[in-house]
Design a protein around this nucleic acid. Sequence first.
DNA 1: CGTTAAGCTTGGATCGATTCAAAAATACTC
DNA 2: GAGTATTTTTGAATCGATCCAAGCTTAACG
Lengths: 360, 360
Amino acid sequence: MASTIEGNTRPIRLADIAKAAGVSHGTASNVFSRPEIVREEVRERVKAAAEAMGYAGPDPKGRLLRAGKVNAIGVATTEPLSYFFEDPFARAMMAGISEACDATGAGIALVSAGNQEKLAWNIQSALVDGFILFCIEGGSRLVELTRERKLPFVALELGFDDDTVSAIGVDNVAGARLAAQHLAELGHRRFAVLALPFADGSTGLVSPEKVRTALYTGTRDRLVGYFEAFSRYGVDTAGIPVYETVNDEASTRAGLETIFASAAPPTAILAMSDRIAMVAIEWLTARGIAVPGDVSVIGFDGVPDAALCDPPLTTVAQPIAEIGRRAARTILDFDGTVRRETLGVELVVRGSSGPPPKTA
Amino acid sequence: MASTIEGNTRPIRLADIAKAAGVSHGTASNVFSRPEIVREEVRERVKAAAEAMGYAGPDPKGRLLRAGKVNAIGVATTEPLSYFFEDPFARAMMAGISEACDATGAGIALVSAGNQEKLAWNIQSALVDGFILFCIEGGSRLVELTRERKLPFVALELGFDDDTVSAIGVDNVAGARLAAQHLAELGHRRFAVLALPFADGSTGLVSPEKVRTALYTGTRDRLVGYFEAFSRYGVDTAGIPVYETVNDEASTRAGLETIFASAAPPTAILAMSDRIAMVAIEWLTARGIAVPGDVSVIGFDGVPDAALCDPPLTTVAQPIAEIGRRAARTILDFDGTVRRETLGVELVVRGSSGPPPKTA
DNA sequence: CGTTAAGCTTGGATCGATTCAAAAATACTC
DNA sequence: GAGTATTTTTGAATCGATCCAAGCTTAACG
């Protein structure tokens, strides 16, 4: 009760307890951190003194400096903090991370910020043992910022071709191939791609140059996978519109407007995320275009929500939680080496894909 | 590059670069924390030395000890960490908390643990300036644990009658009254209540004694609200079954089994959470009982998902995000006083409630 | 009773920074 | 050029603990 209330007395330190109990601070410390090596009588005396003075136990701030380990991992993104609780992909990932952290008793610190400057500061000053980076937009900046900190970190999602950074991702080429193949086998021949960002801050129809110089290799790889499969089915990939979105509703809708303004609109849409795919389904349905009757839609990610939308989304499922678990483990068991893992993906066929309309 | 790689050299400290640059560590510190007060030439020299030695900037661990402020708030619960990303109520709350934290640049540390012992330790050792407590099950334990820590904290959701702890919640009596009144006005006269926990670790039909001695006053208040409204409409409250759940699927289903085993089953169900209500709708629908045709269901909370289920849930909406924002502000602007806030709620009528069947 | 082993305690060193009063350097005034 | 004002820099003190080598007790044994 009295610990902080009586005037401006500064908070009680371990040293104060030691003095009150008539032991050295070393012994007092032992009472709390290794009670078994302190004689019972002394231990009781110290504990009684602590109780009497309202001492809550060693302050983690002090302990931290000595121990050097925070026992928490930071999860950083350039999106606002609420992203972690609202975006389905992020949530599934966080569930995996949480699991690994729970298992070892580690905590999670969420790092983000309204503006770039604050983000830099927050990354500089986060009390964590390492970082997991959600590389959405501005991913490369995030990596640079974090590298500065000289703590272990692992990048998620977008593969940076930089082999010096640990990263965990999926086989984007294979996944995309699966998606395209599925549609081609259903009989589709006219496609459109709603892509994730190739580079920071642009949207719109994408030129082959842009693809070659893509900053985000994950996006490029998915496109490569789509095109590989198409080639095998004799589809002319040159005619396929590829529209770059920023994985949000507005840019996706803009992409759809553009794509369906064409004289020969596609009968199948390849979306590089479930988010995009679900917006597409909504947009199409609202226009009276039947899914999958008139147009099939296939996503990428395999977020839980995809199973619940109407029609349920056919998609390429990543082992999202597993990625999260591995990312957390990479930080928790950090051994100084760069670790790059690529996990497999799985085609999940649901209701949003079917044969093309006969009339087409 | 070389900072950590060359053998076992211990990491570079601020003092090292001070020596290298030929200035005192005081000056070196100023270069980073108050660059404007050091002469440009010196500043450049120190920065160059830092760069050359691969010094990433002052270690937050050291800074922390001196500054005393972590600039992060802890959010604690007895549930596993994944709760924060999966439960709709928690997510909506976290979104509000995130917003307030983003605005001031504060971080969020999630605190939880697999078992009770670890939880105690994690709360003891979390590096935070204060706690927001998600008081679900075991709420009182969580409060005790946190009180030990002697940091500011605020309890969410369940009102503890303990006036010494800050808490933010809603007017449960008024909200419950709204719910019951709505059903009564639709013409219902036979009700059942699916309640939240009254005390730790029990489920089943609830006796009046139990209600009187309820540990969770929030649960009790909602019941009081229901009954108040019923009395006003001349409904005999003695005959209303009140089944205590632990806000999960299993206990809710068990409650429904019990309730509908009756000879005169209710025509309306009052659920104390949207979670319970949604499970109820699913259970009823699966039994071929029409909602709201045969039985009306009303929830409590107003989570976003409630608008999306089929039929959309009629419920009493709490200003969840606002509660989160205020809780965060309470910690961030802590002034040493106990703050207890009660916010208003709102009846949201959707598709799950309607007049009772004619035949009943 | 002296010796040895084992168990406890001690207090200085350390973790990595920030702060602030005082000293030093520089600039300015007459 | 002395005197004063101003800007910079210094270095000791501090934040709150943990660690560990060395010293001290105590118990046991011959």
